[in-house]
Design a protein around this nucleic acid. Structure first.
Lengths: 157, 157
DNA sequence: CTTGACATTGGAGTCAACTCCAATGTTATT
DNA sequence: AATAACATTGGAGTTGACTCCAATGTCAAG
């Protein structure tokens, strides 16, 4: 007979709070079996599902997205069409991730230049800062900033 | 006499909703002057503040953080100690950003391998996937995953 | 039986950054 | 005066992922 885990055991093993586990049950993400006293009993497969959830959350999947992909566990043989769908989904997610990385690289650059400019005011760093702020503002608004001033005022980030 | 802008004008110029502008006023981030009829009147300096807010939000500052840094605008001469504080804050923000980038690079790698594995099951890609999932799980929990299985089941991401 | 540690349910609250809506007032044009 | 487009305020709602809490039941050990 396979070992079943209480909610407290699962919480300790996986570092997921009991309330969160109840929440996942309530919204239908991971629904363990129940004893006669209504206590939840988690199987090893339930624990694997939960671990997959943790990994997918690391990857920034929403719970809705997670709900969609967990279903593949339940299938006896692997449907190639479904695998292709998930694969395409993962590719889209990756494209999104690459975009975020590009955004954060620009942010990092801006923060570098802003910090440097605050420490050491000179024409060159002012110029570099103004340049990147313009680029960023184009990202934000798709146009040139109309009201722009030189000096420390612009160095907020 | 300097031109003052109505809330509708500001909203159109900067692409910030009127309700958001009122919200910023209410929480004390940008508080324009008022006419006798209580209508808000934004100065050019208010607009510059709002543009700085947009840039700082691009950089992922919370409104609380933004509130803290906007004060530098209000000072007649620049206090070097304050500049050093802001500079240090920007450095900390940048370190955070670099961490996020590292995290996202790992995510991107995982998504790549997962998608590839789903498209083309073979020992090599399974192995690579298992390896990176283990690394990620160590990030999440600081330990080895205890209940691990091979196969498509693990390929959720 | 008592006590303490566990469980359950139902339902509301938290968070940050907005967003919506009703009621009311203001302005400018016809 | 009527109308339309603007403004205001106050206050509640939205979002997604939890988190808290009161009331009640269950279990195991002393």
């Amino acid at each position: 007979m396979e070992k079943l885990y209480s909610i407290q055991e699962v919480s300790q093993i996986l570092g997921i709070s009991k309330d969160t586990l109840r929440y996942y049950d309530r919204i239908g993400i991971v629904s363990p079996s129940r004893e006669e006293n209504k206590y939840r009993r988690y199987s090893k497969d339930d624990l694997i599902d939960l671990m997959n959830i943790q990994i997918m959350q690391y990857v920034d999947f929403s719970l809705d997205e997670i709900r969609g992909t967990l279903n593949i566990r339940k299938m006896d043989n692997i449907d190639p069409v479904y695998c292709e769908e998930v694969s395409a989904f993962l590719d889209a997610k990756n494209a999104e991730t690459r975009k975020k990385i590009a955004h954060l690289e620009k942010v990092s650059q801006l923060l570098n230049i802003a910090a440097e400019t605050l420490r050491n005011f000179n024409i060159e760093s002012d110029r570099r800062l103004a340049k990147i702020v313009r680029e960023i503002y184009m990202d934000i608004r798709g146009g040139e900033p109309k009201y722009f001033k030189e000096g420390c005022d612009d160095h907020q980030g």
